[in-house]
Structure formats: C-alpha cells, structure tokens
C-alpha cells in the first residue's frame, strides 16, 4: 500500500514539477496564463516534443541518438530544395520523411549489425549528416519555398484557433503512446531495453526492434524539421544544432531511465513542456538568454537529484 503511494508519487513527480513551475511563472508574469501565450507555447514545444518522443523509444531500448539534429537539418534541406524546385508539396514532404526514416535505419544498422555503441555510432552520423546538409545546401539557406496551403499549414497554420504543429504533435503523441503500450512492438521495446539477452531468448528479434526504433526517430526528426522550415519559410543548413540535448533532457525529465527498459512517453511530453515553459516564461520575464541557460540546466539537475532522492 505504502509502496504504491510512493510509486504513484514518483510517477507524478514530473507533472508536479511542471505545475509548480507554471504557478511560479504565472505569479511573476501577467502574460503567462493568457490563452495566446499558452497556444503559442503549444506550438513552441511541438518541435522538441516530436524529437523527444522518438528519443524516448531509443532510450527505452537502452540506446541514444545524437544525430537527430543533423537528420532534422538534412531532411528539411532536402524537402525545401524539392519545394523550391517546384515539386508537389505533399510528395516533397513524404520524400523528406522517408529520407529521415532511411537515415535512422542507417543508424540502426550500424548499431546492430556493426555492433557499434549507439553513442559512438550516432556521434559519427551526426557529423556525417551535418556535413551532407552543408554539401547539399552549399552552406546557404534555402529560400523561395512553395506558397502552397499544405506547406504553410504545417508550421504556421491554425485549426479552430489552435496552432497546427501543436495538433500534429498531440496526434503523434497518441499514436506513439498506443504503439508503446498496446502493441507487441511496444512491449518488445521495453523488453530489449530491460534485458536484451532475455528478450532474444524469448524469441524477440532485438536487432530488428532497434532498427525500427532509430528509423522512427529519424522520421520524427524530419517531421519536426519540416515544421521548423514551414515556420521560417526557409531551411537553414545549421538548423537543429544541439536539438539532441533538449530532446534527451525532456526524456530524462520525464523519468525515463537512460539505462533503458524503464520510462513513459507521457513523462516525455511533460518533460518537453517543462523545458518549453521555462523558455517561454523566462522570455516573458525578459531574462537574458545567458541566464536562461543557467536556469534551464539548474532545473534539469534539480529534477534528476530529486528523482535520485526518492529512490
């Protein structure tokens, strides 16, 4: 009985933290709890959240993906390039997503078949994909993109007053949540991360599970990149730099164990919200971006320390 209460408390920890931060910011700034700002917030976090969802899967299998930012950049540049050359927007987006999937699959293959540690493998591909982006863009932003409704919608659109990227993020969240909790694949993700040997001996093709997980993350990174591209109406070759860190931070803040096998997608959503709320609130309070970084890092550290305490 006592144990279940403690257990539930630790599950609710991130949510309590979020509510606390929001309350404090609400008191400090009159503009924080306005409808406009909250909707704005939803749009702001959608990019990090989408990447962090994929990262959650990767970390659950006991891996890590440092290349998400570079995959984002290459996928967006590719999509933008095709748009600029007049391709059908839907087709361009699909090809972009497919490229993200392929880059992720490449990561997965290196890690499983090449037996390279995920940290090293994705550190290398992070550099490779970034380099490929610079080659493809010749180091310059790609502008003059399509003015099609679809493409504008992705990053800038609203449905019933709600920013479309936010809606997209929430739909993806529910799909991935379902995949993780209700399907055989989701169960396999937890098993592979929890004890790969036992999973294999239970007939699970661990390599295949991992390749899928990295592919999924690659695709989600490009989806985030396309939102970014649509919002800026241009693709930057340096887009997504350091995004992997915010994504990993969101996952960790959400209570997922870096050792794999343990964690929740809902926690990652909360984690992404915490980071987003901090960015947003500190901006409203006109805190300099230098101090913002210190506060953000401090909150992450505090959260992890509190988590250790409760164990």
């Amino acid at each position: 009985m006592q144990q279940t209460i403690v257990n539930n408390l630790s599950k609710l920890g991130p949510l309590i933290g979020l509510v606390l931060i929001m309350t404090i910011l609400g008191f400090m700034s009159d503009n924080f709890f306005t409808l406009d700002n909250l909707l704005n917030l939803l749009r702001q976090i959608s990019i990090n959240a989408l990447i962090a969802f994929g990262m959650t899967y990767v970390i659950l299998t006991g891996g890590i993906d440092l290349s998400v930012g570079s995959i984002l950049a290459f996928g967006s540049a590719l999509t933008a390039g095709m748009l600029a050359s007049g391709m059908d927007p839907l087709l361009a987006v699909l090809i972009g997503l497919l490229a993200g999937f392929a880059m992720g699959a490449f990561n997965g293959l290196i890690i499983t078949k090449g037996k390279v540690a995920p940290f090293i493998a994705t550190l290398a591909t992070m550099t490779i994909f970034r380099g490929a982006t610079l080659v493809y863009t010749e180091g310059r932003p790609i502008t003059g993109l399509s003015d099609s409704f679809l493409f504008e919608m992705i990053g800038r659109g609203y449905v019933f007053g709600i920013p479309f990227p936010g809606i997209l993020m929430i739909i993806v969240f529910f799909l991935l949540f379902f995949l993780l909790r209700k399907t055989v694949f989701g169960r396999q993700v937890y098993a592979v991360g929890g004890n790969e040997e036992a999973a294999k001996l239970s007939g699970i093709k661990a390599d295949r599970v991992k390749i899928w997980v990295y592919s999924l993350t690659g695709m989600l990174s490009v989806l985030a990149g396309i939102i970014l591209t649509s919002r800026l109406n241009s693709a930057q070759p340096t887009a997504g730099t350091m995004y992997e860190l915010d994504a990993i931070a969101a996952v960790v803040l959400g209570g997922t164990s870096l050792a794999g096998g343990r964690g929740r997608l809902y926690g990652t959503l909360i984690g992404a919200l915490i980071i987003g709320v901090l960015d947003n609130g500190l901006n409203l309070l006109n805190v300099s971006s230098f101090y913002q970084q210190i506060v953000k890092g401090g909150v992450i550290l505090l959260a992890v320390l509190l988590d250790r305490r409760s164990k």
Partner: peptide
C-alpha cells in the same frame, strides 16, 4: 536473472514476452 527474466518488469510483462 541474466537470460530468463527482465527483472524490473512485472510478472505479467515477463510471461507475455514469449506468448505474444
């Protein structure tokens, strides 16, 4: 412990692994 079970998962999740 190393090959038969995923220790921090529940009885349900462990038994289910082979019975998907």
């Amino acid at each position: 412990k190393d090959e038969g079970l995923v220790l921090h998962l529940s009885i349900r999740e462990n038994i289910a692994l082979t019975n998907m």
